[in-house]
C-alpha cells in the first residue's frame, strides 16, 4: 500500500481520470474532494460494506417473496419512524 502525506489544498491523481484533493483538515476529520468519471461509483467504505451485506441478505426467490406476500395480504403495513 502506498501512503502519501498531503496538506490542505494538495491533491493526488489516480490513473488518468481520478483526482482526490484534501479540501479541509479539522482535528481527526479530513474532508476530501473527488473528481472521477461518472461510471465510477464512490462510496464511504463502511457504508458500501453494510449495503453489500444488506443486499446479499435480502436476495430472495420469487416463491419466497410470494410466500411472504400471501401471509400479509390482509394486513396493514407501515413503517414507524425511529424515535416515535
Amino acid at each position: 500500500m502506498l501512503v502519501l502525506a498531503r496538506k490542505k489544498g494538495q491533491s493526488i491523481v489516480i490513473g488518468r481520470n481520478v483526482r482526490v484533493f484534501v479540501a479541509e483538515v479539522s482535528g481527526e476529520t479530513v474532508r476530501l474532494g473527488i473528481e472521477a468519471p461518472p461510471e465510477m461509483e464512490i462510496f464511504r467504505e463502511e457504508i458500501y460494506r453494510q449495503l453489500r451485506e444488506e443486499n446479499t441478505g435480502s436476495i430472495t426467490t420469487p416463491m419466497e417473496a410470494r410466500g411472504f406476500l400471501s401471509k400479509n395480504t390482509d394486513k396493514k403495513i407501515r413503517i414507524i419512524p425511529e424515535g416515535s
Binding site: 462510496f43 457504508i47 453494510q50 449495503l51 444488506e54 443486499n55 400479509n72 395480504t73 390482509d74 394486513k75 396493514k76 403495513i77 407501515r78 413503517i79 414507524i80 419512524p81 425511529e82
Partner: peptide, 27 residues
C-alpha cells in the same frame, strides 16, 4: 440505480410493521 442517501434519518434496516388482527385494515 441504487442510490445511497446521505441522510441520518434513514437506516438500512428499518422495521416494517405489520399490524395483525383487528388493527389491520384489510385491503
Amino acid at each position: 440505480k441504487q442510490v445511497v442517501l446521505n441522510d441520518k434519518r434513514y437506516s438500512l434496516r428499518t422495521p416494517l410493521v405489520i399490524c395483525r388482527g383487528d388493527q389491520g385494515e384489510g385491503r
